[in-house]
């Protein structure tokens, strides 16, 4: 029986290696930067990893047109979901801002005091609120 055309071994290694390089880059960003820019970068790098997976591992690059459409359409509807939900959440007004914190009714979190200022080795990043 004749074999079907296949990709070389290098192809598989290259795909996996490029994803791992992108993961390493995200870890480097995490180690060196802080703040929203760092989050945007790490999630952006995740997006690039996803593009590699979708196009090369899942083979959407060479898939039939309609199968591509399904994938794109799913993302489009997810986009609608995000955008329209945010249209509400981001424009709701400042009801919660005057509160001690958002909707703080019965938080199960024990507040920090002077005697317990570290939690399993991680120093707290904020001043604790008044008990």
């Amino acid at each position: 029986m004749e074999s079907v055309k296949t990709q070389s071994l290098k192809y598989y290694f290259a795909v996996a290696a490029s994803i791992l390089v992108l993961v390493a880059a995200a870890l480097a960003v995490h180690a060196t930067m802080k703040g929203p820019v760092a989050s945007a970068l790490t999630l952006g790098l995740a997006g690039l990893q996803a593009v590699v997976v979708v196009l090369f591992s899942m083979g959407l690059r060479k898939e039939k047109g309609f199968n591509r459409l399904i994938f794109v359409a799913s993302l489009m509807f997810l986009g609608f979901f995000i955008i329209l939900t945010l249209a509400d959440v981001l424009t709701r007004g400042d009801v919660a801002k005057d509160e001690e914190f958002n909707f703080s009714i019965k938080s199960p979190v024990k507040p920090l005091t002077g005697s317990n200022h570290t939690i399993d080795g991680h120093p707290p990043r904020h001043e604790g609120r008044a008990p």
Binding site: S104, P108, V109, P111, I119, P124, E127, G128, R129
Partner: peptide, 9 residues
């Protein structure tokens, strides 16, 4: 949840 934390959420 029973841990200590800085952020109440």
């Amino acid at each position: 949840f029973s841990a200590i934390g800085a952020d109440p959420s």
